[in-house]
């Protein structure tokens, strides 16, 4: 009660202090990447496409803290821009997947009967399509636009979100307070949103985090194959790809974006693990 009225920053701080070490590391990484995506491009020292150094695959220097790429562009600036693209696309796709999956799941579970059964079968069929394959086919047929990438990723991960949400909703649906609402004469919408949904928010948020990680990896993988974000734009995956020939020199230009992808996904994972571990402790 009181906690709700407190400022969100105070609550975030209190939340972080309650986490184990791994959780704090995750929290710090997530916070770092969130700020990078929000403010990064305006903080970037150089325009994203500008060739600013004579030296290609340059190493860490004061002028270019993360080195330079295969054309002599500033890597720090490129990573800051790339991070916004990766995180933005992945966020959009993960939100779309989770919201669609959860909505269908709750409504289907609340209505029950043959509708629920039919939707369940359909989702089972969809979940068996490998996401990478689907993405490749889509790009091959329609070309790689950001909208298409988002839609494809969202479509691939909706059945997974549906499955988790439905199993949560099925459990909640049989609980006495939902029965009490039915006996009161409440409609499907009220039961779904007011009685069932609030009791599955926390596990769904954890699931959302995981889905975000999956999408980051899918999009980075696509870009690495050259089928994702197209030049002149570059997300973190494309940065790895375009600098791949620097790998033999151990150039920061290829190591740093790879590290960025790793620290983003590991950070989200650590945070989710710590949060869901904490909530199950509270329940005990």
């Amino acid at each position: 009660m009181i906690a709700e009225r407190r400022h969100w920053a105070t609550r975030a701080w209190a939340l972080m202090k309650g986490l184990p070490l791994a959780g704090r590391i995750g929290f710090a990484l997530v916070l770092f990447w969130a700020l990078a995506a929000l403010l990064g491009p305006s903080l970037a020292p150089h325009p994203v496409g500008a060739v600013v150094a004579m030296d290609v695959y340059g190493t860490f220097t004061a002028a270019h803290p993360l080195g330079t790429d295969y054309l002599g562009r500033d890597m720090l600036s490129r990573i800051l821009h790339g991070a916004r693209l990766t995180i933005g696309l992945a966020l959009a796709a993960a939100v779309a997947a989770s919201v669609t999956g959860t909505t269908i799941a709750i409504l289907s579970a609340t209505i029950g009967g043959w509708i629920d059964e039919g939707v369940g079968r359909l989702m089972d069929a969809l979940i068996s399509i490998p996401s990478k394959m689907l993405a490749l086919v889509m790009v091959a047929s329609f070309g790689a636009s950001p909208t298409l990438l988002i839609l494809t990723a969202a479509f691939s991960y909706t059945p997974g979100a549906f499955r988790i949400a439905r199993s949560l909703a099925i459990n909640v649906r049989t609980l006495d307070y939902v029965q009490a609402a039915r006996a009161r004469g409440e409609g499907t919408g009220y039961i779904a949103w007011v009685e069932i949904f609030p009791n599955m928010v926390n596990p769904m948020l954890a699931d959302f985090g995981l889905r975000f990680v999956f999408v980051v990896l899918l999009l980075s993988g696509m870009s690495f194959l050259g089928l994702g974000v197209q030049p002149p734009d570059a997300d973190l995956g494309s940065l790895v790809r375009e600098n791949i020939s620097g790998l033999f020199e151990g150039a920061p230009a290829v190591v740093m974006p790879a590290l960025a992808i790793a620290s983003l996904t590991v950070g989200v994972n650590l945070l989710i693990d710590a949060l869901s571990g904490r909530s199950s402790q509270v329940e005990q």
């Binding site: 006495d176 009490a180 009791n199």
Partner: peptide, 26 residues
């Protein structure tokens, strides 16, 4: 359930056995 009127719902109320599970914790 679907054929009952709101007034019928209102006039008959059920109090379930287990008070621990019958109030929505949220």
């Amino acid at each position: 359930l679907h054929q009952r009127t709101k007034e019928q719902f209102r006039r008959i109320q059920i109090v379930f056995q287990n008070a621990d599970t019958v109030l929505n914790p949220a």
